[in-house]
Design a protein around this nucleic acid. Structure first.
Lengths: 295, 295
DNA sequence: CATGGTCGATCAGCGATACTGATGCACGTG
DNA sequence: CACGTGCATCAGTATCGCTGATCGACCATG
């Protein structure tokens, strides 16, 4: 017997809420039902998944959580994908992009609007995960996501959903620092290990998330001195220029008012990828081909 | 409400069997139950999924089928992954590899057996999909899969399961042809488009599947003149040498009795990747690190 | 140390569900 | 044209999954 997605859903909700009763009201169940859900899930898997009071996932629960999100996403994606084949293609082109990826759109989009003048277009800028989820759920027809990766690998998207991805652009990474910074000498590259103890700005929605950099550098340092939860590039650059800290950004994102030193080790690149489900709309297809990386 | 995995499972079984009643007996249900499953699935998604008599999937059904397999696999993987954290690590190291990937194992394995002499080892050579499925289901702790891909991309494995993958080796591709073949001149490369109308041997379990090559070349040609469903490299090389056709193989797989001309376009590489779930076993971890690509 | 409050576990009960087995109906076949 | 195969449908039943009530453990408070 398979793991029941309903139980999975209440499980992730409980884990998010940290409370059975809160999850119950969020899901429109009674606390009793939630308790039973977790109980059957635990007896089904033969191991406790949550420690109660306070409610925290056990190691086994952590493992299950890693799977649960993608599975639920994928189930929704399947439904959306099926509905897409039966419904006729929408007249509006709905696009989604993560903040730094959006810039790749303008030119390609202009070209397409010339050949398909009738299509209404909408663009939503949101977080990477939301782009993926939106594409999976069919809310968006085309998505652009940017991120950092090792040169030979693609972005490691929530690899749950069978989405077609194509590389749209790649760019080198630089360490952005104030022009007055001692390391702001052009010509030389920097290694992350040299900067382990620097003041870092973590701007996970915009720049390379520090957690990703830590993983790539295999370092436990690189702790944020400042966290910027926002998507406005100008604000981040101003923060950097004012000396609040450094950030790793794609070279093309920089303006002259901050200094940029190439990041040499670990070898990472900035990459933006196009993702979509099955395309039935010719206009969407045109955008997709217009965007494809002409390396 | 989510799509019910049970219904999904009977749906794929029906699609495989091409018959409701056959699927019913395969699943241990009555024909009535299967019919009801399909009916609820169709009403749930609001569209017919199967055309009856004969039983073939509708376009919408095809789309669902693409999702169904990965989803079911992933559900099993989740269960297996959870069970793995609770059960103590097995004493035997179970390895799986696709035929051409297996060769990468021997040296790394020897090194590990020196440091962990106690561990019993088993190696299963099977198809790529079965390696993935086995890793997902927890039957194998470590898997090696080979395949072809564009230079900057990893292998496109059944991207349903959240498996950790690491590149183990990469190799250039060559067109293998009989030594007497007119194109068997060393030094020059070949393009697939030059060979569109050649006699091809499709050996999907061993060499680059022709379907993959067609997709990469964007060509409708490259039709198999001969299909070899087997995993023995020597047999395939003999077939090639005897003039039954050409095949695209990694350079390292070749022996001197066939000629090899580098494949230049499309730009593709042969790559073998290591995949596994969470590793709790130190010996398995040692194998994993020993195998990692020291580029 | 006593007490009230919160939160999860448990239980009884009931409505919905998911099967089986029997029958009906459509299509392909001899 | 009749028959047989194979899916759809229907009634019946056992089980499941929910609610609402109750219980018990733990925490905060005076």
């Amino acid at each position: 017997m398979h793991v029941d997605p309903h139980l999975l859903r209440t499980f992730v909700t409980v884990a998010e809420c940290g409370s059975f009763s809160a999850a119950a009201s969020r899901l429109g169940y009674t606390q009793s039902a939630v308790s039973q859900h977790i109980a059957t899930l635990e007896s089904d898997l033969g191991t406790p998944l949550l420690r109660r009071r306070p409610v925290v996932p056990t190691p086994a629960g952590e493992r299950l959580l890693e799977h649960a999100g993608p599975i639920l996403l994928r189930l929704d994606a399947a439904r959306a994908d099926v509905r897409r084949t039966v419904a006729d293609p929408p007249s509006t082109l709905t696009l989604a992009a993560s903040p730094l990826a959006a810039r790749s759109l303008a030119t390609a989009l202009a070209e397409v609007r010339r050949t398909y003048p009738g299509t209404e277009t909408s663009l939503t800028v949101c977080g990477r995960d939301q782009v993926v989820a939106g594409i999976a759920a069919g809310t968006f027809t085309l998505g652009l996501v940017d991120g950092i990766a090792t040169p030979s690998d693609p972005l490691n998207l929530t690899n749950a959903v069978q989405l077609r991805t194509t590389s749209v652009a790649h760019d080198s990474l630089v360490v952005a620092l104030p022009t007055t910074h001692p390391l702001a000498r052009p010509g030389r590259g920097l290694s992350l290990s040299d900067l382990a103890d620097a003041r870092w700005i973590d701007a996970p929605d915009l720049a390379a998330p520090l957690a990703t950099l830590r993983a790539a550098a295999g370092s436990d340092a690189l702790r944020p001195a400042f966290t910027y939860n926002g998507t406005d590039l100008h604000t981040l650059l101003t923060l950097i220029d004012s000396g609040h800290g450094l950030a790793v950004l794609p070279r093309s994102a920089l303006t002259p008012n901050v200094a940029a030193v190439p990041l040499t080790t670990p070898r990472l690149v900035h990459r933006t990828e196009l993702l979509h489900g099955h395309l039935s709309d010719p206009a969407a297809e045109a955008v997709a081909t217009a965007l494809s990386d002409h390396e």
